[in-house]
């Protein structure tokens, strides 16, 4: 990086277009080739451009594309890619049925960022610390990717390939995110640890449990900022599924989840701290989700 790199002057010169339909977006994508980039809220991309990590020749804004907006419930919930984090944080159905996602959106930095940032941008930026990713993984979300060639649906778990890397092809647009239908006896929770509220997660975790009587009959545990991508803690999920949870079991599941993390050290936290804290927050999230699922206080 050049020493003069700064957030005051955006050095790169680029074209900017504001299409209103997906068809026009595809046209611009093919016209400008790999030099083009989609921009939604810009809260990741513009920062990266100012820091000179990305240098697109053309920005294609998604802000006016109607097909990417809105929220519909249809055996689950489909959320348009450009839905703002703030709209999800304030959505009544999300708060009720997808509590962990609402919690993640409410813990999302500051209000100005929440208003600008979009769900699609959070996923396509593919930061290991993207706060909406763990809850979406916990809700078995899938993403609809569209191009001129048509639409394909990819489970979110297969979407993230590495830091900044996704299954998205250059000619594709993330159109919407689908969350599986909420079931009876389910409860979820999201917990984030950060240096201050207006910060990216040091670690975050989302949990969804489905309860039948005193048993966990289904369980999803997902973590952020502990590996190159947001990850599911499959071993810990399996450990709890079919079990009657008590404090010891929940602690053990959390320990297993912590053991399976591969965190790094950066300015926000050390590797050791991340591993330790993931165990703590998985335990906390499991406990809260269990109570929200109507489970009895753990002994």
């Amino acid at each position: 990086m050049y020493i003069a790199t700064n957030t005051h002057i955006l050095v790169a010169e680029f074209d900017y277009v504001e299409p209103t339909t997906l068809e026009e977006v595809f046209w611009h994508l093919s016209e400008h080739g790999p030099q083009a980039r989609l921009i939604a809220g810009g809260t990741d991309l513009l920062v990266q451009m100012k820091m000179e990590r990305k240098n697109p020749a053309c920005l294609i804004s998604l802000a006016r594309v109607l097909e990417l907006q809105g929220m519909t419930s249809n055996s689950g919930l489909t959320v348009g890619a450009t839905a703002s984090i703030r709209s999800l944080a304030r959505s009544e159905p999300i708060g009720r049925h997808y509590t962990a996602l609402a919690e993640a959106c409410n813990a999302f930095s500051t209000i100005p960022i929440m208003v600008m940032a979009t769900l699609g941008g959070n996923l396509c930026n593919a930061s290991p610390a993207a706060d909406t990713a763990p809850p979406l993984l916990a809700f078995d979300a899938s993403v609809a990717l569209v191009s001129r060639a048509g639409q394909r649906v990819v489970p979110l778990e297969d979407f993230f390939l590495g830091p900044g890397q996704t299954a998205l092809r250059h000619d594709e647009v993330l159109r919407s995110v689908h969350l599986a239908e909420s079931v009876r006896g389910a409860g979820s929770a999201f917990v984030k640890v950060a240096r201050v509220a207006a910060d990216i997660s040091q670690v975050c975790a989302a949990v969804r449990v489905v309860r039948d009587g005193d048993h966990v009959i289904d369980c999803r545990i997902a973590l952020g900022a502990v590996a190159p991508t947001p990850v599911r803690a499959h071993r810990a999920e399996a450990f709890l599924t079919g079990q009657r949870p008590d404090r010891g079991r929940v602690d053990d599941a959390a320990r297993i989840a912590g053991e399976d993390t591969k965190p790094i050290t950066d300015v926000r936290a050390t590797q050791e701290y991340r591993r330790h804290a993931s165990r703590v927050i998985v335990r906390d999230a499991l406990t809260t989700a269990w109570l929200r699922a109507g489970g009895r206080e753990l002994k």
Binding site: M1, T5, V47, M51, V196, A197, A198, I200, V267, R268
Partner: peptide, 17 residues
């Protein structure tokens, strides 16, 4: 500087804290 001067990596408490 480890933050390389970028404010997104240096944090100060806000009203939330």
């Amino acid at each position: 500087l480890l933050s390389r001067g970028f404010w997104i990596d240096g944090k100060t408490p806000s009203v939330s804290e």
